[in-house]
Design a protein around this nucleic acid. Structure first.
Lengths: 163, 163
DNA sequence: CCCTTATAGTTACAACTGAAACTAATTGCA
DNA sequence: TGCAATTAGTTTCAGTTGTAACTATAAGGG
């Protein structure tokens, strides 16, 4: 077996990146692996896209959001949110009405059917997270939480829940 | 001003995910923010997609790879690699020849022009990484490296450079 | 050898995505 | 008031991506 590939001669100029130790690359691989793992659990089962699930997750947590607020909380752009909502409303998973004082705004909430799906998927998502964290010891878990908080300071989609 | 949105009543059943503390979500936000930040530096300047840059990065590090090996090392699927290579060869940034003993395989390498771009982009990428890591203290940086290594064990695209 | 199976890579088609243009409603201020 | 500027959300179009089918070559076993 099979990968007797040699790196470029070390002395040569051209310092190439070592991707497997390059933080942005590591984050990308890890994030994709984890998200895809979770998505596999619900995509087929509920015919639910990742963006739709994200929208549902914020609507589960915050009632009566507008589409724009969903976009902020999910760090998705408004077009993606608009489309996800169209699908979710069409499928009867999200209820949309118009804001009383401002007819531009929608007021969104999960329907019964939406809650049903949420209550099935959310625990699976949590299980994946636990599984991932199980590879770390308690000490590492705490450092990770702390480090991510620092790195995510003032990143989009990271508004605190509510004081 | 402006986000006076309240979470669902805490006592209610339906335990919703708190996305901003949910590890897969945090990773996704962080990864996208960082990768996009780097991509902004080269997309316009060189008309280079993120997938193309990744391919170039591994070709800079490992000479003579086949397309399949590039796919393994970048954790991209072979179709994406095929397309990226088509663009790169077309643009004269990658040289492709056929393997002597196995006419199915390609043997890939950066051209002069490819190296030029690489030697400009790689330092920018490193600068972004440094900038990100600058938000952490030395202690945190070491923990992060260690934690990522553990979480990425046997993830795709993480073959060691060479023993 | 011949034929089945596996592998490298490309092509085709459909779904997804993002940027920009667009509609509708609201706000601000002259 | 009345009209320019903003904001919420949707639509359009073009480019990207993923899945599956396809071509070409190679490997392996009777």
């Amino acid at each position: 077996m099979s990968h007797p590939r040699k790196p470029a001669p070390a002395g040569a100029e051209h310092a190439p990146l070592e991707l497997e130790r390059f933080l942005p690359y590591q984050l990308s691989i890890l994030s994709n692996t984890v998200s895809q793992g979770i998505a596999n659990d619900y995509q087929r089962r509920y015919d639910l896209s990742m963006t739709e699930w994200r929208v549902m997750a914020v609507l589960a947590r915050f009632h009566g959001l507008s589409a724009r607020e969903v976009a902020e909380r999910t760090a998705m752009d408004k077009v993606a949110v608009s489309r996800a909502l169209a699908g979710l409303v069409e499928a009867g998973r999200v209820h949309r009405e118009t804001h009383g004082n401002d007819k531009r705004r929608s007021v969104l909430s999960l329907t019964e059917a939406g809650w049903h799906i949420h209550d099935d998927v959310a625990p699976m998502a949590r299980a994946h997270e636990r599984e991932l964290l199980a590879r770390l010891d308690e000490n590492e878990r705490q450092w990770l939480a702390r480090i991510l908080d620092k790195l995510l300071e003032d990143a989009p989609g990271m508004k605190p829940g509510e004081r």
